[in-house]
Nucleic acid binder design. Structure first.
Lengths: 254, 254
DNA sequence: CAGTGGTCTAGACCACTGG
DNA sequence: CAGTGGTCTAGACCACTGT
């Protein structure tokens, strides 16, 4: 067996700008990522050892390691002790953003729109209370929307939010997604816990979504947290299975 | 508004064993994680600054930072410049492992079992070829199994693997999950790309799964990659929606 | 302003891999 | 055995936060 794809760095132009406010490790990471994306660094190729790379760039080894580590975390590089650092073999697409259905549809060129069905204060059910960390029966904001693409219904969205977190203005809700409103309000979304299942539509649900009774629906419950770990939203949504599926990526943490 | 929950470290017993082969930063991270889990470090409490912590433990600051950073990556801590490091407010459960249905069921005490329906070599379909990175029509290993819990069918599992990757012995397939076999064979699973949807069962599917025709089924397609980015498995599975849903966590990468 | 985390340096020794 | 990444140290300066 030949040695693993020997292919040290060649026409690879690396260099950092010490005048820039962008951290050096980040500049390096960006350049490496770009080189991987555009094929200058081919899958399987070795990166050359950290010490040389640091010397060539005029950086210290920890700084170079920080850049490399960030790409390892993204799944673009693999490190093996005694071997070296190589580019992964197949381009593993990056994990999906925590995005809203609205953004997903817009990205896909589907011309999304929203019809607000309800927007009021209600007492929290047991499920909502547990998700948002409030007392059962305490007031929470409720939001029910129908999401359409090309004028056709795609999903029935029901959300609950802590009171006072966000001003929900109807015209803005119809023009964009909930997550974008949150980000615009200075909320840093951090993580979400989701549960995806399926069930048959009952009569009224089917009518709202233009499906017949008994048609399969995708169900999604999601609680979203900000960067301090506080829950900022709980959703319980129904999607037409004929029109929508969830795509996502799992990463194994070593 | 009072200052954020003031609560410096008090009865927290930290200390590292320099004789241990376990890295110092890892020892510290484990102790902090345990303190968060058992409530010694309460949500919102501040950790005290890194310099002090390092001095108190006889470690350097970078080592302490490495420990803290690993917990930030896990979503257990939040750092804010000028403020400090605090424990997140709600316990965000850790992201799910890349686990097999078999393990999930076993963990839930559901006594899983497996019936192997097919185990042979077949030409790759377009979908399988694209997922595994082989030519269309090239030979791949096929595996079809019925997964049961308490003797009741839960899912119909169809997998395709590159030839020669793994010896699939029927008795071992019936006693455990595919992922555990892979790990035992020295394959390091790294990431997976998934797509989850729903559709109605057709006649034969319903019969296999003990559901009537038209019953909602959860569908899952998944391609799994090892740590070099090479695809090691592609699955196309059907789950009884009445018995199963997917739980997972999304993390936003800053 | 004082205090925090964010970045960076220039070394060191160790553990593992491969030939 | 030589070469790699993994870990660790003891400093330094900067950027941001709150009062």
């Amino acid at each position: 067996m030949p040695t693993p794809e020997a292919d040290p760095v060649r026409p690879l132009q690396l260099g950092v700008d010490r005048g820039s406010p962008v951290p050096l490790y980040f500049q390096l990471a960006q350049q490496l990522e770009a080189a991987i994306e555009d094929g200058t660094l081919t899958p399987g190729s070795l990166l050359g050892n950290e010490i040389d790379l640091a010397g060539r760039l005029g950086l210290s080894r920890p700084t170079v390691r920080q850049a490399i580590q960030s790409l390892v975390d993204k799944g673009l590089l693999v490190r093996r002790r005694g071997v070296g650092t190589q580019v992964v073999h197949s381009q593993v697409k990056r994990p999906l953003e925590l995005s809203s259905l609205y953004d997903d549809l817009e990205t896909a060129g589907q011309r999304p729109s929203t019809r607000v069905l309800a927007r009021d204060l209600v007492p929290a059910s047991a499920e909502v209370a547990a998700a948002l960390g409030v007392a059962e029966g305490a007031e929470v904001q409720r939001l029910e929307r129908l999401r359409l693409a090309h004028g056709e219904p795609m999903a029935y969205l029901r959300n609950h939010l802590p009171v006072g977190l966000l001003a929900l203005e109807e015209d803005r809700l119809e023009a964009t997604g909930l997550y974008r409103l949150m980000r615009a309000a200075g909320i840093t979304l951090h993580s979400a816990r989701q549960s995806v299942g399926a069930r048959a539509a009952d009569g009224p649900e089917g009518e709202q979504l233009d499906e017949s009774e008994g048609a399969p629906l995708l169900t999604m419950r999601r609680t979203t947290f900000d960067d301090t770990g506080r829950p900022v939203e709980h959703g319980s949504h129904l999607y037409r299975a004929s029109r929508y599926s969830f795509e996502f990526q799992l990463l194994v943490r070593p």
